[in-house]
Nucleic acid binder design. Structure first.
Lengths: 207, 207
DNA sequence: GAGATAGTTGGACCGGGTACAACAATACGC
DNA sequence: GCGTATTGTTGTACCCGGTCCAACTATCTC
């Protein structure tokens, strides 16, 4: 049972109901990207197939490239909360590694963004890169904040470098895992192998 | 004295002379960015001030954001040649570190891109980020190629992770150095402090 | 019903980027 | 000097992503 004040059920008070949904637009976009590549698909084509107006697209996404990153943004935002519940007696860098690994363990195959699994089919490399750095920068900022809050010995340069290096390792593992065929190993294992050396390297200067 | 076949002096053979130059456009752009920020300046304003047509802009730059990266692109390209002359008896990762550090040692203050020294004045963060990842990816690819060519023990995952982590450290040091005031330390020293832990961490798995 | 509210839509507009054809200036062989 | 190939410049038309906004529509509550 849900109460009117239940915060989990927004309890719509008024207003017209959404005629579409992120999912519907994402689905239409995914089809078109596979047919015509990302660059060869216009927003208008996407919204037309989804049965919405072009103007509505921007009610659901801030940019076309958001379609490529699907759940990645929410995953990144999730990192912060997973970091905050880390115990204080584990080394900060180890906490970061386990937080990130625990995150990907929760990923179900259907939540993996199309752009990642279909990579080259969509001819999407350049656009992915262009829209990617802000995401990685956001993740790095989260990691760095955590390091600064948990470390006694933590010069700004080293925390920042460690954060960026961790994110770099994550990116490397993600890209390799994404482009790997079906015989690729587990994502968690790859992330571990990529991140652990970074943690070891910075263990002395960031703790 | 220069001979007609001197490859360093292209010895113009025919054709109209350039009416403008990259430098002239960069200068006009720099002024306008300081006056109106990057986002508040149009390509047309830039070319008008430089006394060229808008169409000509794209003879000199592939995109507006190229103006932000000035010499960075040539520096990145330079890394490859500096890596190729590394002796084979130094650890590959150490070679990468010293190649990068030697590179910045050659930077004269006047070659530092405006966008880096004027950072926040130009309100340029988002655009820098958006156009930055392709550059960093290019650098990472160079680093990774070098690792693969020099390493006996080098699984693809680890070389890629090491390359990305190194680039992350470089990015962190660069950003911190760029945003630091006049009392900031030496760029080389900061790079060293940022990269060394990465090299140490990957020394075991990439060699 | 009357509001208030939330969502949709069309249209105007801006600016980056591409494509291309016409034009201008230079070097060279004759 | 004169054609000609070459190189660079310019105007123009166009596409597309993204912003802005005012009009409209459907829903909820009183």
């Amino acid at each position: 049972m849900s109460f009117p004040s239940d915060p989990l059920v927004p309890a719509r008070r008024a207003g017209r109901r959404p005629a579409s949904s992120r999912a519907a637009i994402e689905e239409a976009a995914g089809e078109l990207f596979l047919e015509n590549t990302y660059g060869g698909t216009t927003i208008e084509q996407i919204t037309t197939r989804a049965g919405v107006s072009r103007a509505s697209f921007f009610n659901y996404f801030r940019a076309k490239s958001d379609l490529l990153w699907g759940d990645v943004d929410v995953l990144i935002a999730d990192v912060a909360s997973r970091l905050s519940v880390q115990r204080h007696d584990v080394a900060p860098l180890d906490g970061i590694r386990s937080a990130i690994i625990s995150l990907v363990a929760d990923i179900t195959p259907d939540r993996i963004p199309l752009a990642i699994t279909q990579w080259e089919l969509m001819g999407v490399r350049e656009d992915l890169l262009a829209s990617g750095l802000p995401r990685f920068a956001a993740l790095a900022a989260i990691v760095q904040r955590h390091l600064e809050s948990r470390c006694h010995l933590a010069p700004a340069l080293e925390t920042r470098a460690a954060a960026f290096a961790v994110v770099g390792a994550v990116a490397a593992a993600s890209e390799l895992w994404a482009s790997g065929g079906p015989e690729r190993g587990s994502f968690s294992g790859m992330l571990d192998r990529a991140i652990t050396p970074v943690c070891e390297g910075f263990a002395r200067s960031v703790r």
